[in-house]
Design a binder for these strands. Structure first.
Lengths: 197, 197
DNA sequence: TTAGGTTCTTATCATACATCAATGCAGAGG
DNA sequence: CCTCTGCATTGATGTATGATAAGAACCTAA
């Protein structure tokens, strides 16, 4: 079992015994996925949380017009899941797909619940993840409500400089809620501005 | 102490002794606020959760151009807080303001933490609130990414028919991320459509 | 009742962004 | 090496929504 990243991540974020941590990690499965492969599809029940050991995932939805909308990217050391589906046990409205050949740790939802009950520190940790998630979502809403394409892009660069380099532009556009063409133009204008100044 | 709504709300959502519930409620303060009055302002630390007994609140931000963006409405039986500020103990980026004369229960953040530690059922309850919050935020992002003004408005009507009638149109527009003028147009077009069919 | 402030509507014009279509370009695979 | 395919760019055009301004409708309070 090779889940080095998860172990170190938990060790530095969970204030419990190393042995206990490895016993947690032992209980999880590792899965390798090829680029393009899906870990979750719409209408499926999402019963796990994925922790990205290596690679890059995306979570997205498809609207009635068939257009994709990216909710989040998940690079190394990120957790991704459809909490809505996992927690309320409902069919998911989202897809989770690999953008690169990846390796993920699959953590069972029941197992998460169990750990939360048994280990207070884990419950706290989980709580923190939830709060971080909320923080992130709220900032995004704020951005969508207030900022024009250019500002959204600039913010994206600042927050996810690494991801910017790893995904096709069309996906960044989808994340920002604009078309690839618009993003291309925004980039052009920015380049010109920077050149002048 | 008159916090009837919170008591019944907790009773039907928290699987614990009624006595324990009233001991919880006893520990909270009641506050009456007049219309327009603020419960939280930008840069303040938000140390409480508000539960709306009576009335209606709004949570909003103000961007660099001075424009207001409504993140959420909170009518009776809703909790509202800036989790970001409360949990991470940072100055808030938001305002919370009464849209009607209201009565709220003020629940101290420390008290929430304490209860979570002491009463597992309360911790579960809190967890559920967090998940609901996330669900709500995600749906909103999806809507902002995919839907045009008209669809956003229709969705709003469906989800919050009560709130629609209680707040000025300009605030609905702010929630939807469009101008009041645009909303007026959208409404006009919808009215014409409905008249024809 | 009038007066004065909001809020809502309406109209015109401006603009950001979408859409559609063509071309360029680079990496993958034969 | 060449071709194929997907992605980025660019231009022309359309459209939804924003900005501004003015008037209408509505409330509230004197």
């Amino acid at each position: 079992m090779n889940s080095f990243n998860l172990t170190t991540y938990l060790t530095s974020n969970l204030n419990i015994d190393e042995k206990e941590i490895s016993s947690i990690v032992e209980n999880c499965k590792i899965k390798k996925v090829k680029k393009e492969q899906f870990l979750l599809r719409e209408d499926q029940h999402c019963n796990h949380t994925f922790f990205v050991e290596k690679g890059l995932l995306r979570q997205f939805s498809i609207d009635e017009k068939g257009k994709e909308h990216i909710l989040s990217f998940a690079p190394e050391n990120w957790f991704v899941t459809d909490r809505q589906s996992a927690y309320f046990d409902k069919p998911s409205a989202y897809y989770i797909q690999a953008l690169e050949d990846s390796q993920v740790v699959i953590i069972d939802e029941n197992f998460v619940q169990l750990l939360s009950k048994k280990i207070p520190a884990f419950s706290d940790f989980n709580n923190k993840l939830l709060h971080n998630h909320i923080r992130h979502l709220q900032n995004r809403i704020n951005l969508l409500l207030s900022a024009v394409a250019e500002d959204r892009y600039l913010q994206f660069i600042k927050m996810y400089p690494d991801i910017l380099l790893r995904v096709p532009q069309t996906m960044v556009a989808s994340y920002l809620g604009i078309t690839p063409e618009s993003l291309s133009r925004v980039r052009k204008e920015l380049a010109q501005k920077n050149f002048k100044s």
